[in-house]
């Protein structure tokens, strides 16, 4: 599903990722961990093509970075649901619209949008907050809105960047349960986190990065 081969990414002479090679199988749940600045976010950005590699090749859901055209990038991104670290919620739109936007971009009809958005919000226990605006929600609720937006279009891959970063342990547990539920339906999931509690005893593969280099791989 995801394949990195000798990928290097530099930002103004600072190497964010260096000669990185790994793969993620279809339906797998993988954690990428490491300290701040280790390149976790860069790896996720490379997957959804917010950044382009300086060296090496990346293949995501059949799209190859060496062959992809600029006009193809939106269609690659439609296969990838992203839970952004900074949420990227639209403050002037309510919860329903924030989630629906992922479907509107894909040209889904209004009737289906309503059905799928409400179903997704229900799955993360936010059905009752559909009319609320993001700034009126707690951090955990906002996080779940972002997750809803990432999964509402049934992407083949879901990426989550520090999904429990600012959450209390109880809310973090609830968010992780949501990811496990999505994974149980066969979705490939990649979670970047420095929180050891998330992957400890998960039985999932953990890729350990340090200064952009893959320094280890283990089972959590």
């Amino acid at each position: 599903m995801i394949n990195f081969s000798g990928v290097t990414k530099d930002y103004d002479n600072i190497t964010a990722v260096k000669d990185l090679t790994f793969f993620v199988d279809k339906g797998e749940m993988v954690f990428i961990t490491g300290p701040s600045g280790s390149g976790k976010t860069t790896v996720l950005k490379l997957i959804y093509y917010a950044e382009q590699p300086d060296k090496g090749t990346i293949s995501v859901a059949g799209w190859d970075t060496e062959k992809i055209k600029e006009s193809d990038i939106p269609f690659l991104r439609r296969n990838v649901g992203v839970v952004f670290q900074d949420f990227r919620l639209l403050d002037n739109r309510n919860v329903f619209e924030n989630v629906a936007v992922a479907l509107r971009i894909r040209g889904v009809n209004e009737k289906e949008i309503r059905a799928r958005v409400f179903e997704t919000l229900k799955s993360v226990n936010l059905r009752h907050k559909a009319d609320a605006y993001p700034l009126r929600l707690s951090g955990g609720e906002q996080q779940r809105v972002v997750i809803s937006r990432a999964i509402v279009a049934n992407p083949v891959v879901v990426l989550a960047d520090e999904p429990t970063g600012n959450l209390d342990p109880v809310t973090a547990g609830s968010v992780m349960k949501t990811f496990k539920d999505i994974h149980a339906k066969g979705t490939t999931i990649v979670i970047a986190t420095h929180n050891r509690e998330l992957y400890k005893n998960s039985g999932k593969r953990v890729l350990r990065l340090d200064t952009g280099v893959l320094v280890g791989e283990e089972i959590g």
Binding site: P74, R77, V82, F84, R88, V101, I105
Partner: peptide, 16 residues
């Protein structure tokens, strides 16, 4: 701009 950037990351085409 922020909103457009989000749309792009969610898979919006230039036409959209």
């Amino acid at each position: 701009k922020e909103e457009i950037e989000t749309f792009k990351l969610l898979g919006a085409t230039r036409g959209f």
